[in-house]
C-alpha cells in the first residue's frame, strides 16, 4: 500500500477514536485528513482508512463520492468555488462566473449557497471565503494567490 497517514495524523486518529462510540464515525474525519495530506483522496488512502476504522473500502468509496467537497483526483489548477445560488445570483454572481469562465488557469466550480448571502457575491478558495466580490476584486485575489 503506497498511502500512509503521517505520524501526526495517526496520533489525531487515535485521539478521535476515543471520542466516538464506534470507529465508523471516523470516516469523514479520516477522508479529510487524507485529502489535506495528499491534495486528494487516492484509492490507497481509502484502503488505509478501511483498515483503521473497520469499514469496507467500497463503502468508504461510496461515502467519498457522496460529498461534493471530497476530491478523488488531484487537481493541478487552483480550485475556485463560486456560489451560484439565489441571493448571490440576485447580487451579480453571473458576471463573476462569466468572467472566471474565460480563465483557463483555474478550475472553476459553481457551488450552492455558501452561507454568506449577506455579502454576496461570494467565492471560496482553499477554505477561505472572499466576499462582496467585484471583477476587479476577483482579479486581484487571483493575482495574489498565484
Amino acid at each position: 500500500m503506497s498511502f500512509m497517514f503521517s505520524k501526526e495524523n495517526l496520533l489525531k486518529i487515535e485521539e478521535l477514536k476515543k471520542r466516538y462510540p464506534n470507529p465508523h464515525a471516523l470516516s469523514l474525519p479520516c477522508l479529510w485528513m487524507a485529502q489535506y495530506q495528499e491534495g486528494f483522496i487516492s484509492l490507497d488512502a481509502i484502503d488505509a482508512i478501511s483498515q483503521i476504522i473497520h469499514m469496507p473500502s467500497m463503502e468508504i468509496y461510496g461515502v467519498a463520492t457522496f460529498y461534493t467537497m471530497f476530491r478523488l483526483e488531484p487537481s493541478e489548477k487552483l480550485i475556485v468555488d463560486v456560489c451560484k445560488t439565489l441571493s448571490c445570483k440576485l447580487c451579480g454572481s453571473d458576471e463573476i462566473l462569466e468572467h472566471l469562465e474565460k480563465n483557463d488557469t483555474i478550475k472553476l466550480r459553481h457551488v450552492e449557497c455558501l452561507g454568506s448571502c449577506s455579502t454576496a457575491p461570494v467565492m471560496q478558495i482553499n477554505d477561505v471565503y472572499y466576499e462582496n466580490l467585484t471583477i476587479a476584486k476577483v482579479d486581484a485575489i487571483l493575482k495574489e494567490l498565484k
Partner: peptide, 29 residues
C-alpha cells in the same frame, strides 16, 4: 461533558436531523 466538532463535506441534506446522524456515523447522508 466533552464537545467534539464534526465536519461535514458538502451536502445540504445532512442538515436534516437523521441524515446528519447517518453522516456522523460515517455514511452517506
Amino acid at each position: 461533558c466533552d464537545i467534539t466538532v464534526h465536519r461535514g463535506a458538502g451536502a445540504y441534506i445532512c442538515g436534516e436531523k437523521s441524515a446528519l446522524l447517518e453522516s456522523m456515523e460515517g455514511k452517506r447522508g
